[in-house]
Design a protein around this nucleic acid. Structure first.
Length: 483
RNA sequence: GCGCCCAUCGUCUAAUCGGUUAGGACAUCACCCUUUCACGGUGAAGAUUACGGGUUCGAGUCCCGUUGGGCGUGCCA
């Protein structure tokens, strides 16, 4: 084992980043940063049939959005370049040849047809579908002839039976497999590309990866990898198999039951702070009662030893709560930028608002929203006159004397230049006294007039934010409409 | 089928070397605050620690079994 801690995130460029994949990347990242180790990114693009153009760019963008900067990897390079497996083909070939020479692997000329037929037959017997080592027994002459004739071939690992493969997983403890259940894994495909199994162990070894931190779905192939390390005479890295992220029905998190792409959450308006905080806690805990973490705190407290070993259901409600918490913790200056961006996607895009105005709106709405964009939905009255008045509130709060009360209120504020919040408050109180009614008889109609709804920020805040002219206008308008 | 992994409130989880009224958070409900809605505060409800044995003075914690669930079983990763 290397003394230096080096971990890698090794995604396949098949499209979007799955949220579970982001968590794997995050744990690798946190572990590296916590221990002063190195975090590398390697692109596992050995399946040409699944390659999606633009996927790598998307991947890099998502990592960068999430704040997971890497020390070595695509675009950036590093001492162990290249970091695209498709550019390391000769390395894999060379190593596969070494295994052949040492009888650890062998050529297999079986056609896909024969293989599927074999599998069918085995299935009928006991579902144990394993290659029958047919080509292991080919003579040297036959092999050379096939090779010379250009017969398509793959290279398989020769797995001996009756061997116990044991290793210590950092999150799961001792794990044991018998080699009998392990197939003669294909190492090199007929197109000359390596399979994941071969490429990943060669690269991990060559890139001096010390800890392999990956999803639990890899646990069943771990013994294959150990066998490969042994075949090469290499010491395997340490393994940590992370618990899976689950749907509400406890199956592996999938697209059918909600959003799984990081991109989707970003689009919906989730803050990276909230998403990172949330997935960090899905399968890991520091052991105390702390729930809200910023990035640096996560780095400081993270440890692989405290990773949980059972799957975790992705609970959107808790994510929403964290988003609210992180939003409230965010400086207004940053939220303004986000709000302006969201503004572009609304019908108010062409309107002009000062930063000061938007900050006032944000201050008023911050405790009432989950996403920045909720502001437009929950408080459109900061951007346009109310079109209609909430029926239930009209029934409850709009009385016969409401027009007179609002007129009186309008008179009072018209006399004040640039009224402050306190001025509105006083005007409300004075109006109530003079009209000989409770303050509620002023507040509720006024709220209806200015916002059209019964909920929202304090009435003084609403009036102050939209300004005297708009308050007067809206009073006039509601009297016209409701009489 | 076979192999491996897993099992504490609905959900995420805590509980040194076995000794707690099994703790916290989200969600839910109630009250307080606010003449609104939220935020916030207080509190409630919610877990015979999947089940059954065993070891022990004592088990959520250790052992065995059962059940349930998940993952894997590709010339995918």
């Amino acid at each position: 084992m290397n003394s230096k801690i080096r971990v890698r995130y090794a995604p396949s460029p098949t499209g979007y980043i799955h949220i579970g994949n982001l968590r794997t990347a995050l744990y690798n990242y946190l572990f590296a940063r916590n221990t002063g180790g190195e975090f590398i990114v390697r692109i596992e693009d050995t399946d040409r049939t699944r390659y999606v153009p633009g996927a790598v760019e998307n991947l890099i963008n998502t990592l960068s959005w999430a704040g997971l900067d890497y020390d070595e990897g695509p675009e950036k390079g590093g001492a162990f370049a290249p970091y695209y497996q498709s550019e390391r083909l000769s390395i894999y070939k060379e190593h596969a040849d070494y295994l052949i020479k040492n009888k650890k692997a062998y050529y297999c000329f079986c056609t896909p047809e024969r293989l599927s037929q074999l599998r069918e037959e085995q299935k009928k017997i006991n579902n144990d579908t394993r290659y029958d080592k047919h080509c292991l027994h080919l003579s040297e002459e036959e092999i050379q002839k096939n090779l010379a004739d250009g017969v398509p071939y793959v290279i398989r690992l020769n797995v001996e039976k009756g061997i116990k493969i044991a290793f210590k997983d950092i999150v799961r403890g001792d794990v044991e497999f018998m080699s009998d259940i392990i197939d003669d894994q294909i190492l090199i495909k007929s197109d000359g590309f390596p399979t994941y199994h071969l490429a990943n162990i060669i690269d991990d070894h060559l890139m001096e990866v010390s800890h392999v931190i990956r999803g639990e779905e890899w646990l069943p192939s771990a013994p294959k990898h150990i066998l490969l390390y042994q075949a090469f005479g290499w010491e395997p890295p340490l393994f940590a198999h992370l618990p899976l992220l689950l749907n509400p029905d406890r199956t592996k998190l999938s697209k059918r039951q909600g959003d799984v792409a990081v991109e989707d959450y970003k689009k919906k308006g989730y803050l990276k702070e909230a998403l990172i905080n949330f997935i960090a806690l899905l399968g890991w805990t520091a052991g105390d009662d702390k729930e809200i973490y910023n990035f640096d705190e996560l780095i400081k407290s993270f440890s692989l030893e405290r990773v949980n070993d059972s799957g975790a259901v992705f609970d959107i409600e808790k994510l929403n709560w964290l988003n609210e918490e992180h939003l409230r913790a965010k400086p207004d200056s940053e939220i303004v930028v986000m709000l302006r961006d969201e503004l572009q996607h609304t019908k108010y895009a062409k309107d002009d608002y000062t930063d000061e105005y938007l900050v006032n709106v944000i201050e008023a709405m911050k405790p009432r929203i989950t996403f920045v964009k909720d502001i437009f939905e929950k408080a459109p009255y900061f951007f346009e006159e109310p079109e209609t008045y909430e029926e239930a509130s009209v029934k409850k709060g709009w009385k016969a004397n409401s027009p007179d009360i609002l007129k009186k209120f309008a008179e009072k504020i018209s006399a004040i230049e640039n009224p402050k919040k306190e001025d509105y408050e006083k005007a409300i109180a004075d109006t109530a006294t003079e009209m000989n009614v409770g303050k509620g008889n002023v507040i509720h109609p006024l709220r209806l007039a200015t916002s059209g709804v019964s909920g929202g920020p304090g009435i003084n805040d609403i009036c102050y934010i939209i300004g005297k002219e708009k308050v007067e206008e809206r009073i006039k308008r509601i009297i016209e409409k409701l009489g």
